[in-house]
Amino acid sequence: MKVLRNYIKSLFLLEMFKGMRLTGSYLWRKKFTIRYPEERAPMSPRFRGLHALRRDENGEECCVGCKLCEATCPAMAITIETGPREDDGSRRTTRYDIDLFKCIFCGYCVEACPVDAIVETRICDYHFEERGENIMLKDELLAIGEENRDRINSDLSAQAKYR
């Protein structure tokens, strides 16, 4: 008897119409997808995206080459070389590379930085076309910092109370 009932049900596509009713009901509801990349989802100020090196208000690079980020990096993605800068003898990096293939975006480097020089920005979409582009050099990191200066600063102040 049960077998016969199921047979008739499947013959009239009852289950499918039930499903289509649920699908159809969403056609008139408010959409919750967004049209990426024209539209963006809201992001936390603590979002951990592409790295940037900051400069201070005088245009001086913040990084003093203490190498704590390099030491703390669990993926060993950061390579730093330091030395006294020629003009004033201050401690500066002569090389600051981040290998984005190695980076796991854990944000430890940001936590370790005593001068808020390395930050992770909200940039989360980028691509590489050539091998080697995955290594972000110091100049590129500084340039990202300059381009997104205001956003980085506002994000830093937004999260300041939690740090």
């Binding site: 190498k67 030491a71 330091t82 030395g83 401690r91 500066r92």
Partner: peptide, 9 residues
């Protein structure tokens, strides 16, 4: 050796 390396490296 000034600013050349850190002890842990």
């Amino acid at each position: 050796y000034r600013y050349q390396a850190r002890a842990w490296e």
